[in-house]
Design a protein around this nucleic acid. Structure first.
Lengths: 89, 89
DNA sequence: TTTTTATTTAGATGGTTGTCTAATTGTTTA
DNA sequence: TAAACAATTAGACAACCATCTAAATAAAAA
């Protein structure tokens, strides 16, 4: 699920945006040359992958980054990394 | 390209296999309930993403892991990680 | 309560992906 | 050189994906 979510340039850019601060769906959509339903769909996929969290605040829905899944992915990737050599002695 | 390559369970399992040692295409294919052309296709995608390298050895083609792209991906992911907080003070 | 604003959901469409079978390429062995 | 072996390439097809427009939901404002 997280790999699927990351396999799209728009979604990766959304994550970069949210790295700065939480934003509403509309605010996020302003950064892209794409309709709001499309952005909404991307946010849904990011949410399903637990990479972002959504919280309704009155009329708006505020999206923010959730780093716990990133940490899990990092742990998986470290298995393949050159920085994981146990036999460096 | 690397995200696309990682967005498939079979390809991720191939990487896990190659983590142990380099293997020939046929040897890799034996681990999966799938035709050899399909595995060949997955190896091609992994190769395009520079996650594996291919070297012909006579009748066989030996595949091995290439960790440099993994390191680049790790660096990108670290931006989002909780292990990257600069303001821990 | 009616209207406006913010966002999502539904449905359609063109493009991409994973898998298969059949054919092809490259190498070794007889 | 012909036959056998290892692997890839080509072509087809169903399933999935990103995007769009139109409609629906939810909350606030008038």
């Amino acid at each position: 699920m997280v790999f699927k979510a990351l396999n799209d340039e728009t979604r990766r850019q959304i994550l970069e945006l949210l790295r700065q601060r939480p934003m509403t769906a509309g605010e996020i959509a302003e950064h892209f040359d794409m309709t709001k339903p499309s952005i909404s769909h991307h946010l849904d996929l990011l949410n399903q992958a637990l990479l972002v969290e959504a919280e309704r605040q009155g009329k708006f829905i505020l999206y923010s980054l959730n780093v716990t899944v990133v940490d899990e992915l990092l742990a998986w990737l470290l298995k393949f990394s050159s920085k994981n050599k146990k036999d460096t002695k």
